[in-house]
């Protein structure tokens, strides 16, 4: 293990702000995209007049 402690890991050799600033926004982007898709799906199902959400999954 190259890190000596947890705080050493989060410090990233003094570049913690930049490294975690990048990765945090990457995580937020992924979460944002998943939420956007869920909202779109909910709107669509409402529009189609469906109560049961599982019907449209289409898995056999």
């Amino acid at each position: 293990m190259k890190w000596e402690s947890v705080s050493d890991f989060f410090a990233m050799g003094g570049y913690g702000l930049y490294v975690w600033g990048s990765y945090l926004v990457a995580v937020l982007c992924v979460i944002g995209e998943i939420i956007a898709i869920r909202i779109r799906r909910r709107t669509l199902y409402k529009h189609l007049g469906l109560r049961k959400r599982s019907i449209l999954r289409g898995e056999k």
Binding site: Y15, S22, Y23
Partner: peptide
């Protein structure tokens, strides 16, 4: 050269 910053 870049230390840990390159992990981006």
């Amino acid at each position: 050269q870049q230390g840990e910053a390159y992990r981006i």
